[in-house]
Amino acid sequence: MIVAETKPLDEIKALLSDAEKVLVVGCGTCVTVCFAGGSREVAIMGSLLRMAGRMDGHERQVEEVTVQRQCEWEYLDAIAEQVGAVDVVLSLGCGIGVQALAEHFPNAWVVPGLNTKFMGLPLEQGVWAERCAGCGDCLLGLTGGVCPIARCSKQLLNGPCGGSIDGHCEINPEVSCAWQLIYDRLTEKGKLEVLMEIQPPRDWRTARHGGPRTIVREDLRLPEDHQAGQSMKQEA
């Protein structure tokens, strides 16, 4: 899932500036699961902003709403009226949610309430860790299911470097050495010979380095006349 964290309140207040009416929009998907932008966090953010407004002598009208998925147009249509009625929309979605709102409601001013951190998983209650860098050319089949792109500090393909110590990375004892994990896994599975091969330099075009990425699935696309009917933008 996408893991995010709430921005500091002072930063959010600065983003809201002198807005009189604010709509806090949560998202029911990833950021709900990571306790950053679900309906509970929306309610907390609403209360914080009202309280802060009273303390700063700048009272605001703060509305709250949470959609099932901020990253799909159809879920956004339902809140068009609320969006149209405020000065600023504070999204507690991930960066995709913020942009979906801004793209769908061009007349609205949308600001982020979260910092989107990474694609990862909860290791335990309250702890999340990065697992995927979205590089676009998955090599987990070579590395025993441990990703060196997302989890090695140097993204080595022929690791481990000399900074591997007692299973952790030299940059931080809290960070596991991905290559120690890969080595252990391949040893256990009797597949160490994979590590003896020199992995060639990667084609990073599949990752972000080839420019922003788009996927087009012709088999799923609708006929052109139908597409025209599905307007992306809506006047708010």
Binding site: S153, L157, N158, G159, I171
Partner: peptide, 27 residues
């Protein structure tokens, strides 16, 4: 491969690691 930038005086820098040390030798 190079010491990680978190140890130096620009820990805020972006690192590159386009290729690794073994790929560099080969290159």
């Amino acid at each position: 491969s190079g010491d990680h930038q978190t140890f130096g005086n620009h820990p805020m820098a972006k690192n590159v690691h386009d290729i690794d040390s073994i790929q560099l030798v080969q290159m």
